[in-house]
Design a protein around this nucleic acid. Structure first.
Length: 113
DNA sequence: CCCTTGACTATCT
DNA sequence: GAGATAGCCAAGG
């Protein structure tokens, strides 16, 4: 495993760890936040070998769809984990709420509607 | 080296 | 909006 790969992975994982529950980030956003703009494909690589404990499911495509093949086991798992955090879908796309609308979730906890 | 492969993206039809 | 297309870039064959 190359030196680059190890340092890159650890920085990416640190960013992913910091994504709060109920929120998602794009591959490109994570790459930028980790200090590697244009490395979205590398982020996907890092995710494929991420530690079990990492909230990998909070990383999605820039268009807010899931990166796995629709209907695959991984796809269903990710969708389920996100829904458990109160994230809703509009078809294949995640519905992102403005920050201030999160008061409901803070007061009432994750809802499954 | 050259070519292909991705849990990707921005842009153009 | 949904495809197609061009960039993207390390890794592995």
């Amino acid at each position: 495993m190359s030196e680059f790969q190890r340092t890159f992975d650890s920085k990416v994982w640190k960013v992913v760890c910091a994504i709060p529950p109920g929120q998602v980030m794009g591959y490109g956003e994570v790459a930028r936040a980790a200090g590697f703009p244009r490395y979205s494909r590398m982020v996907s690589r890092a995710m494929s070998r991420c530690p079990e404990a990492l909230p990998w499911f909070r990383v999605v495509r820039s268009d807010r769809t899931l990166a796995f093949e629709e209907g695959s086991e991984s796809y269903r798992e990710q969708a389920q984990l996100l829904k458990q955090e109160g994230i809703r879908f509009e078809g294949k796309k995640i519905v992102e709420q403005p920050r201030e609308d999160n008061l409901d979730r803070i007061l009432w906890g994750p809802q499954d509607w």
